[in-house]
């Protein structure tokens, strides 16, 4: 024979338990909201900046004018590439220039293999730095018999890869 005279105690106990749990939950949840994605914001900013710089180096200043990027890759001019890239990259509208470092390599096809030729070596800030971002740009090289290693003289498309990091 079921007697429901103990229900009030049980209900009271459960209500008290729920109140305690709800309070504990509210306290814990207000402090534990974390925002994933904050870690990638500097990566996005650097990647957009690097892509912009390579695109602007690839744009001649006048119609039919000199394309800086193609010339620098044709001559394998590492110092020129380094200084031009960093000049665009670190320029700010006011205040001190930014402190971004870079290293560059060029990927080209040799028969069936894809080779990589280091154009600008990373400097001594290679360790102990923020995470690096890779940006790339295609460059078309014309047939040029005077161009020696490593690309060879044939007309080809190569990929310039630049690593940037803030140090």
């Amino acid at each position: 024979m079921v007697n429901d005279s103990g229900q009030l105690y049980t209900m009271e106990g459960i209500a008290a338990g729920l109140v305690m749990l709800l309070t504990a939950y509210l306290i814990l949840s207000t402090t534990s909201i974390y925002t994933p994605g904050d870690t990638h914001i500097p990566d996005m900013q650097l990647e957009q900046l690097g892509s912009d710089v390579l695109a602007m180096m690839d744009t001649p200043d006048s119609d039919g004018g000199e394309n800086h990027l193609v010339n620098l890759i044709n001559r394998s001019d590492r110092d020129g590439f380094n200084s031009t890239f960093l000049k665009y990259c670190n320029a700010r509208t006011n205040g001190d220039p930014d402190t971004i470092h870079m290293s560059a390599s060029v990927a080209y096809r040799d028969g069936d293999r894809i080779e990589e030729h280091q154009l600008v070596k990373p400097d001594e800030t290679w360790t102990g730095r923020e995470s690096a971002v890779r940006v790339t740009r295609w460059v078309q090289l014309d047939q040029q018999s005077t161009r020696g290693d490593p690309y060879g003289s044939r007309a080809q498309a190569v990929l310039v890869e630049v690593l940037l990091w803030r140090a």
Partner: peptide
């Protein structure tokens, strides 16, 4: 072929 091969390998 350059474009297709390098895209596959590097990108």
């Amino acid at each position: 072929d350059d474009i297709i091969a390098i895209s596959l390998d590097r990108k």
